[in-house]
């Protein structure tokens, strides 16, 4: 008989889905049994859709990012609301290109998702190793903001500092 292919990553995902299930369904005996089945199936499906990559999620680092992220997304909402309501509508949309050393794919998309909630920036994909960032207003700090957030994400994902990307 073949040993079941249970990797620690699969186990981690099962636990994660199980916790979410318990939060939604409750903790009676029936819920727990159904939850174990569903969490295992969901983890298996997620493995088929998103196989584990180089990134190892560091939950502590990720949790440490949360307050800063929430604070900046609060500022982002306030900033854009102010510009939308102001009768003069103070915006001057433009594009900047920011080199990234994140690998193409899910990680860049994650960084891009974050930036759609940060003040003043919006990512419209990347060309080669350059992120295409849309800025709502003249903001000299936007470039540094992107670089700093990328470094934070890199730490939370346990990625080693890569060589700087070529422009």
């Amino acid at each position: 008989m073949r040993a079941l292919p249970v990797s620690p990553f699969l186990l981690k995902r099962i636990v994660l889905f199980f916790i979410v299930w318990l939060a939604m369904a409750g903790v009676s005996v029936g819920d727990v049994i159904a939850g174990l089945v569903v969490a295992t199936l969901a983890a298996w499906l997620s493995f088929a859709l998103v196989p584990p990559g180089d990134a190892r999620l560091n939950m502590v680092q990720l949790a440490a990012m949360a307050p800063g992220f929430l604070w900046r997304s609060l500022l982002g909402g306030l900033d854009v609301a102010r510009r939308a309501i102001d009768p003069r509508m103070p915006i001057s949309p433009h594009w900047i290109a920011v080199p990234t050393s994140l690998p193409d794919g899910g990680l860049r998309a994650t960084l891009g998702s974050e930036f759609s909630l940060m003040p003043g920036t919006l990512v419209a994909g990347s060309y080669r190793n350059v992120l295409l960032v849309h800025c709502l207003d003249t903001n000299p700090g936007a470039r540094d903001q992107v670089v700093a957030e990328e470094a934070r994400l890199r730490r939370a994902l346990g990625l080693r500092r890569a060589a700087p990307a070529h422009e």
């Binding site: 997304s73 609060l74 982002g76 909402g77 306030l78 900033d79 854009v80 609301a81 510009r83 939308a84 309501i85 509508m89 915006i91 949309p93 759609s116 909630l117 940060m118 003040p119 003043g120 919006l122 419209a124 849309h134 709502l136």
Partner: peptide
Amino acid sequence: AGTLGLLRFPDTHSRLHALTKADNLG
């Protein structure tokens, strides 16, 4: 405010700023 931005801002990308950021906060 997000809806106001959607109506007032001049182009697709600027409108996205308004929708994502303001609505998320809302």
